[in-house]
């Protein structure tokens, strides 16, 4: 081990790297001091441009009917043990509603662009190394397109703690929907696959609330969970394939 210590003494930042980093810090400092107010405007302008662009390609739905104040979107909550957390949230796009989602770990905020799948927005976050954070928060706000996120009609706050993750023996998937306003049949298909390659499908549910838990077997190294949610009427439908890996 002494050898290792000695060997590493030769590992130093080169003079050129030190100068480059120093210059980058100087530039960053100047930017922080000078650009704070304009940055806010830039972000606001970018948000407007993005919203217009999304509207123009139909990603965000214009309210075609009277916006509802009911919660019409399913909520996904997935948590996993191991070294990382991947959280996928999707909303069943109700007419005239949008959603804003934010994930933060301790004081760091991660907001990744949403992807569109089958006309619905999928928010996928990787909260990186959960062991490095005390707490991970997820905020999800559903709001009507003709209002602002401040007047949210849906509030979902989820919190994961690193100790929960480390001690978790089970992988839980929680799916909930209160899409009763549509009053149309829906089918939910939930399944998971283990190391053996088999895909286990749970029974279809009543479409209201599903609580689904996978327990890793002793001889199983990883459990992949493939979560699929589908509405059979084809109108409100969404299919989400959400593969998770649980590593013991």
């Amino acid at each position: 081990m002494k050898k290792l210590e000695n060997a590493e003494q030769n590992l130093r930042l080169s003079t050129s790297a030190r100068a480059r980093i120093g210059a980058a810090l100087e530039a960053e400092s100047t930017e922080i001091k000078q650009d704070k107010p304009p940055m806010r405007w830039a972000v606001a302008a970018a948000a407007v441009v993005l919203t217009v662009a999304l509207l123009s390609v139909g990603v965000l739905h214009r309210p075609s009917a009277q916006p509802t104040t009911e919660n019409t979107q399913p909520e996904f909550k997935t948590a996993m043990s191991g070294e990382s957390l991947r959280l996928c949230i999707t909303q069943m796009q109700a007419s005239g509603q949008s959603v804003s989602t934010e994930l933060s770990a301790d004081n760091e905020v991660f907001v990744e662009p949403a992807r569109q799948i089958d006309g619905n927005m999928l928010y996928a976050f990787e909260a990186l190394d959960i062991e490095a954070y005390d707490r991970i928060y997820v905020k999800m706000r559903g709001f009507n397109d003709d209002t602002s996120p401040d007047t949210a009609v849906t509030n979902s706050d989820w919190q994961f703690t690193s100790s929960d993750m480390k001690t978790a023996k089970e992988f839980g998937v929680y799916v909930k929907t209160q899409d009763e306003s549509q009053n149309e049949p829906q089918e939910y298909v939930l399944g998971y696959a283990c190391d053996d390659g088999k895909f286990y499908v749970t029974a279809p549910t009543d479409g209201i609330t599903v609580v689904y838990t996978v327990t890793a077997e002793n001889d199983t190294e990883t459990v992949s969970v493939d979560l699929r949610l589908r509405a059979v009427d084809g109108k409100v439908g969404v299919t989400v394939e959400n593969e998770q890996k649980f590593v013991k």
Partner: peptide, 9 residues
């Protein structure tokens, strides 16, 4: 080196 720079930023 990039990681060091990012850390200090």
């Amino acid at each position: 080196e990039d990681a060091v720079q990012e850390t200090l930023i």
